[in-house]
Design a protein around this nucleic acid. Structure first.
Lengths: 354, 354
DNA sequence: TTGAAAGCGATACCAT
DNA sequence: ATGGTATCGCTTTCAA
């Protein structure tokens, strides 16, 4: 960590830069300048009653003259609440996370709170490090998108001490807390059922690694839909693992080869969907595709991409609302909110079986 | 702002929830339990030398037993530095902002700093509110993507007090500070020159509102390229304003109508590009298109979208590096960094003139 | 209406 | 090696 910078005066005769570190006026300085007590300054700054207009004006003048700004660190130390919340995401750079983040920010703003954000990159250790760092700053609450495989018992002392925690997109492990999830199984079931309605009987599913909650739920939904329709699932059609282009490409090739080639495909997340789209382009064979999670320009592809859309902003909003309800005193048992998905039909999922 | 929550004991005979707010152990508590002085606990917690292994272990045990976590608010109050920086964006939900944010986060992490983020929505008042709120939390530094029309003199007292400020994507107004920009004019000139090389002579430019720095620079680059090629610019080809679909649609229609219809188009930002793509789809006439700023799935469109790509992550990285160099004591004059753009050829910009 | 003093939870400096 | 005490800048409490 960098050490406290010091303004080093110039040694060459030219004027040193006028930057004077640590020279922030305090309430004490303002009080001295206005000729009042520190407490009076505090009253003016916080709009508390019991100050004559005349005194208030003198104080205001001193504040302006000195460029005083209240030090919230000190205020926080006294008051206990920090009016800030921490948000741990998988990766702020991806659209799901950033939409969720924006929604949390919006709700936080309504409640006068500032937002710490950090990306875990799906690494449980990093998630913990971030969450605890936020807690050390005494955030009032935490919204966490759990990293795969994280164990949330590390948060027990924090929660016990009164920090509210809400989990989004995936449930917490080893801890009871408010949770907001997408109806993953139901969504995958709906997407699969849609393909079945188009006449497909051999449908592949390419999902994220087992161990990731959303991946498993979506797989479950897929299997349920197939079972409901009385359709068998050939093992070669199902592949779970990292959703990089190479693995998805290989899995897709496998699903389309063999004696019972799939004629349709449900992809378990955005990366898989994109990898599949690119791969299918190179093929001459038409394959129906439904993707889980929407893409911003899905309508501009040809054919348009049919998706099971999630509502990342809705997830964030719901999570933040749960969080602030806790901060406002709500003390009931942990709540679970599930947000429905929406099937958006655009063309790629309506390709008939070959 | 919500008031301090109080655990209200149940009045109906059932046990009240066991949540006990404000019951955080302090170093004092740990010291008492371990039978040492507070200062010794501080030494252990901060890994300072001068503690026997035996004592350290006793302290560690007490820390674990009590679930102690250092209160960074108090620490900050003493130390002066908060190991946190504030990032004011236009809208964290858009890809440009979120990519930039991620890069800033990465650099901040290397320096042991946490990140406050907030979206200004292009509203100067909101930008100021956010920046000052971050400063009140005594962030060590600020990275700001200025809102259009913002006047940054409000930051003068903060900068004077030693808070480092770096501006990204647009220059600050009324304040000298480190700034990181995209080479907007050069990029637009390159994009326009590319269209000219394809044989186009009537090229339209649809940009964002005048008053937005990037919009004006890109317009300038467009005009320069046209002038260099000795091509006149018909007023009907140029339109600056909000880049919503309706206005862009109307502007595009105007540019393609008239006695000297444009055969190619440079769009000044992502929203304009998307609006144009949608609009051009509906036309039967082929129009060449180069967009300023890349889109994630630009290669999946047909034709692929030719763009002048910016490097949002590079901007964020450069800005954060400047920031931390200041925090490490760098005291020279304000620096300006300009990042080049990259022309990415994918098809839409290589459509020949009608 | 105004002010003096105590304290929030840590760190820094000086003793022991 | 360990401990005591002042202090960071503010809010709280109680007195004037």
């Amino acid at each position: 960590m960098p050490s406290q910078p010091q303004a080093t005066p110039g040694t060459d005769g030219r004027a040193a830069p006028p930057r004077r570190y640590g020279h922030r006026p305090t309430m004490k300085d303002v009080a001295a300048r206005a000729g009042v007590a520190l407490k009076t300054v505090s009253r003016v700054v916080n709009g508390e009653p019991g100050v004559t207009a005349d005194t208030a004006e003198r104080v205001q003048d001193a504040i302006t003259a000195l460029g005083f700004r209240r030090n919230d660190s000190a205020r926080i130390l006294r008051k206990g609440r920090t009016a800030s919340v921490g948000l741990v995401l998988e990766d702020i750079a991806d659209p799901f996370s950033s939409a969720l983040s924006r929604a949390v920010e919006e709700v936080a703003r309504l409640h006068g709170s500032l937002l710490f954000t950090g990306s875990s990159d799906e690494d449980p250790a990093r998630e913990e490090e971030l969450a605890l760092a936020f807690c050390a700053r005494r955030v009032d609450g935490l919204v966490v998108v759990p990293a795969a495989g994280a164990d949330h018992r590390y948060l027990a002392p924090e929660v016990h001490a009164g920090i509210a925690a809400v989990f989004v997109d995936r449930p917490p492990a080893g801890l009871e807390a408010d949770t907001v999830l997408t109806a993953n199984a139901a969504g995958a079931r709906a997407g699969t059922a849609h393909l079945i309605r188009q006449g497909h009987r051999r449908i592949a599913f390419l999902g994220d690694s087992p161990g990731i909650h959303t991946a498993e739920e979506r797989l479950r939904g897929y299997r349920e839909a197939m079972a409901e329709a009385g359709l068998p699932v050939d093992p070669s059609w199902v592949s779970m693992g990292p959703t990089g282009p190479d693995r998805v490409g290989a899995a897709l090739a496998a699903a389309l080869a063999g004696p019972a080639p799939a004629t349709a495909l449900l992809t378990g997340n955005n990366r898989a969907t994109l990898a599949a789209v690119r791969r299918l382009r190179a093929l001459d064979r038409p394959v129906a595709l439904v993707g889980f999670d929407d893409l911003e320009f899905a309508d501009l592809l040809s054919p348009g991409l049919t998706v099971v859309a999630q509502d990342p902003a809705g997830l964030g909003r719901a999570a933040a609302r749960l969080l602030f309800s806790r901060l406002e005193g709500e003390t009931g048992p942990a709540r679970l909110v599930e947000l429905p998905t929406r099937l958006v039909v655009r063309g790629s999922g309506e390709v008939p079986p070959a």
